Amino acid sequence: MAGQEKRQRKPAIGYTRTSSAANVGDDKDSVPRQRKAIEAYAKRAGYRIVSWFDDPAVKGEDAIDTRPGFAAALERIAGNGVRTIIVETANRFARDLIVQETGFKRLQAEGITLIAADKPDSFVDDTPTAVLVRQILGAVAQFDKAMTVAKLRGARERKRRKTGARVEGRKTLAESHPEAVAMARQLREQSPRMSLREISAALASEGIVTKPGKGKKRPGGVPYTASAVASMLAA
């Protein structure tokens, strides 16, 4: 009976995105939280998640065509007939208003339904009011992100004036692990195509492993996780 009920549920794809490499890793809760919210909505609304696609360390301002995870989701949709993508919130799809609107319209033109688990009508309801609300939410998210960036920049500038030393923000993976990123990309180009875990193992065999971080939880010297490798490829 349970199996029959599961088969009757409409298939959907779950999509998650994290803006920063700091939110990527087995000890981080961003992706598990997003998946939990998506799964809960899918269960309530009569969907079943048949595939998951993630974009680690991908900014909300990046166009959907440039996101490896989302591009893979669209490729999967083209081959399996699934027509629904579920995200945790509209902001997880895109923070930038233009990216959000153009991305939504592209999916709509291809017959793909995009649903935000927290507010299901954010995308599927196309009334004038819903369009206005969607645009306002996108604008507010964009403003909030810009304010946060401005505050951090101001804090760094004040510290620079006070100490005379240059204060930088968090380095990207390409800046902090250039050797690992370069080799990961080379391995990805090989044929047959290697999986993320296979790339991690190949890096480890060459002595390219994690570097020690702050605190006892990040001792370093272990192979990169699949999520970390995905971030390298997207860097």
Score class of each variant (00 low, 15 high):
A204I: 02
P32S: 11
E168D: 13
A117Y: 06
E101L: 07
L137G: 01
A201S: 10
A116L: 08
R197F: 05
Y224N: 10
M1C: 08
V50Y: 01
A2N: 05
R83I: 09
G213A: 04
A90M: 14
R134Q: 07
S51A: 14
L233E: 03
L107F: 08
K216D: 15
T127P: 00
A201E: 07
E206W: 00
G213V: 04
G79V: 12
G213R: 01
T163R: 11
S51E: 15
G221C: 09
G14L: 00
E179K: 14
I208G: 03
G60F: 02
R197L: 12
A174R: 15
V229A: 03
S231R: 00
I112P: 01
N23H: 12
V131Q: 12
A139C: 00
A109C: 04
K10V: 15
G138W: 02
V149M: 14
R106S: 13
F143T: 10
V133Y: 07
K119R: 14
S191D: 07
L233D: 03
E206L: 15
G46W: 09
A201C: 05
K10Y: 12
R153S: 15
E110Q: 15
K151P: 00
S200G: 11
R193H: 11
A37D: 10
Q186S: 13
P68I: 13
V58H: 05
A37K: 12
R106L: 15
R170S: 09
K159N: 11
P56A: 03
S122K: 04
F123V: 06
Y41W: 09
A40L: 11
G207N: 01
D55H: 01
V99N: 10
R83A: 13
A141C: 12
R166T: 13
K159W: 09
A63F: 10
R35H: 07
P223V: 09
Y47H: 10
P128V: 02
R166K: 14
A2R: 07
K43Q: 12
S122C: 03
L132G: 12
F53G: 04
I208T: 10
G164Q: 02
P68D: 05
I49F: 04
V31P: 02
A155D: 08
R158G: 12
I77K: 01
G138R: 02
D65E: 15
S195A: 04
L74I: 11
P120I: 06
R197H: 02
L74W: 03
L233V: 13
P11L: 05
K28F: 02
I85D: 00
I77A: 09
E168P: 00
R44N: 08
R193I: 00
R33N: 14
D121F: 13
T66S: 11
A21M: 05
Y224P: 07
K105C: 06
G111L: 10
R67P: 01
V222G: 00
Q108K: 14
A226S: 11
R134L: 05
P192N: 03
R193C: 00
I208S: 04
L114R: 04
